[in-house]
Write a protein that binds this DNA or RNA. Structure first.
Lengths: 343, 343
DNA sequence: CAAGTTTCTGGGACCGCTCCCAGGCGCACA
DNA sequence: TGTGCGCCTGGGAGCGGTCCCAGAAACTTG
């Protein structure tokens, strides 16, 4: 059986390749009657254009890459990335793009990204996340002329980004803990070279200071967004007797929670706890976690939209989208007197 | 600047396109001296062959698809899939393949899979998971002649699969709970049309029966692998007073744990709990979860290996790889008397 | 009704690579 | 030294589309 090609479809419809191509790509300038004839044949045969041929001839692959740097082997199991992937995937499906996922370890697969995905012209553009604000990779990529969108913060103003309102979110957390009357408010931060962590930190610090209750340096510990690191960091922190902790992600909050449990401290009675993200684990934790909600999945779809814009017009100024954050109060931070109220 | 193409590389090396191609593809039959000349030019220029052109000419895209059906919006956040993706991704990187991720909702994106990924010849083959044993999609795909590997169980013997030893794992769980002296052993199963769930159930049932302590029908409740469903199912189950529960996944065990907590029951004192998977959440749960360990990430890499075999020789008999399972005992099922031992 | 437009349609030239085939060259053998 | 054979190498023909351009057809307009 001869392969089904555009040529064959054209033949069956009694038109030329060019005309068939126009119809299939929805270009106008084809008489309705002829258009219908072609569409009928397409319908009948189930013709679908060959991806590679299209790419080769048309210079566009309709494949978008999603690159995630794996700091540790477990990073991808972070529900944050799961949600992000979900959003990106949905957007790709909706906008007729194919998603290519690229998980790389900085050390090992580093050059695979440029060579495998980019210089081969496999992808039209890249959504990239889990990078640091001044990641050299980003410069490398922009210089290579790859359409790029970063989910998170970057220092290079020519790169479009989509990010949560980290500033507002952290401020909400601070105000909330203050409103509970907590006096010794501590924090388990992410790595400070991460833009998100740095921003949350500054905002948190500022909000506490504004309330006349500045953040005490000894109540600040740094972790790396994993629960294990947060657990260890929290153990150090607990020695300084905080009565409230703001963890920079839910996943880290879970680690903190574990440390609190091991120390025999009750939440929120002894220590109030607030996380960041509002992903499923927050709700499932015992006690359920108060957290700063951000729209991770939406960030994914938004990133795809930005990337498509970028691909179409690479010279347009880089847009930056900021997604809202909000406070979700659960049991891990209810006021002390209301503590006996159950879920 | 003229684009860097194979032609140009050949020119720079003073050889023909064909020879350059041979060198780049590692074929032999090229004089070492000439080979070196070409490789030097490649090194110097950083040439990488154009993916689409290769695909078009060579009939192989070097792209593997990973398709995951999304039963609920949250499925992908299941750490099981996270681990699987991780494994598949790593294997693709190692074996010079690109990974295309396709998350689809049965209802909405169903036909996107065949048309977007397959008929366009975008992918050389497909790893597919989260399907049911007799999923019509699988027949459809095999009939379309797409090289296919399923992670899980399928009824069609012509499809290669990689799967955990569900039978052995479930038996381990049963024996373990029996060894604790539990009398009223219940189970929260996955959906029975899932092959894994069915197998685990049969094995669990059989192992209990073999010990002269058959599974009581009223102590069996079915859920759908999500924690919420497991939580609800467990609430029903608890009314029948079980003293041990085997949940068919860690994620479900977490839901059960929540239900137990809400019912004021202690684990493992009142009810011993065993999960399945041994993914990170199991260790992080309070108390840490006894579980049946399976090598999810390895399943991913194995699937890629099988798929590559399949692509190379589609007519070879379908291999089935079974990965070992093992019992990991943690606090959720320690013997009653040892309960006071802390972590 | 001729000439000038505008609208459609068809053909050719690629896109960059792989693969097949033919020819050149060197060597062994007779 | 002539012939045969094997090893390398180069050229040509696609792979299946897109895009540009020219020419045909249909429609204006004076």
């Amino acid at each position: 059986m001869a392969r089904l090609t555009l040529e064959r479809v054209a033949e069956l419809a009694g038109v030329s390749r060019s005309t068939a191509s126009r119809v299939i790509n929805g270009q106008d300038g084809v008489r309705p009657e002829i258009r219908k004839r072609v569409l009928d044949v397409v319908e009948l045969t189930g013709f679908v254009p060959h991806a590679a041929a299209r790419t080769l001839a048309g210079q566009r692959s309709r494949i978008l890459g999603l690159a995630i740097r794996q700091t540790t082997a477990q990073v991808f199991s972070d529900p944050y990335f799961a949600a992000l992937v979900q959003g990106v995937s949905r957007a790709c499906n909706d906008r007729d793009q194919t998603l290519s996922l690229f998980l790389f370890e900085s050390t090992h697969d580093h050059d695979l990204l440029p060579s495998r995905l980019l210089r081969t012209k496999l992808v039209d553009g890249l959504v990239i996340t889990a990078t640091y604000a001044d990641d050299p990779l980003l410069w490398q990529l922009t210089e290579a002329g790859v359409p790029l969108v970063v989910v998170g913060e970057v220092s290079n103003p020519d790169i479009p980004t989509v990010d949560a309102d980290n500033h507002g979110g952290a401020a909400l957390a601070a105000e909330h803990l203050l409103s509970l009357g907590r006096q010794r408010i501590g924090t388990v931060t992410g790595p400070m070279r991460s833009g998100a962590a740095a921003t949350r930190f500054r905002a948190f610090e500022r909000a506490l200071a504004a309330a006349g209750q500045p953040l005490q340096p000894d109540l600040v510990v740094e972790a790396d967004f994993t629960d294990d690191a947060a657990h260890d960091a929290a153990k150090r922190l607990l020695a300084r007797g905080p009565d409230a902790i703001f963890a920079f992600s839910d996943r880290m909050a879970l680690g903190v929670l574990r440390a609190l449990g091991e120390a025999g401290l009750s939440v929120p009675d002894d220590v109030a706890l607030v996380g960041f993200d509002d992903l499923p684990p927050a709700r499932l934790a015992r006690p359920p976690l108060t957290t700063i909600r951000q729209e991770v999945e939406q960030a994914g779809t938004e990133a795809v939209a930005l990337l498509l814009e970028r691909i179409q017009d690479p010279s347009a100024p880089a847009r930056r989208v900021e997604l809202p954050t909000s406070l979700v109060v659960r049991e891990s931070s209810v006021p002390r007197r209301a503590q006996e109220v159950s879920a």
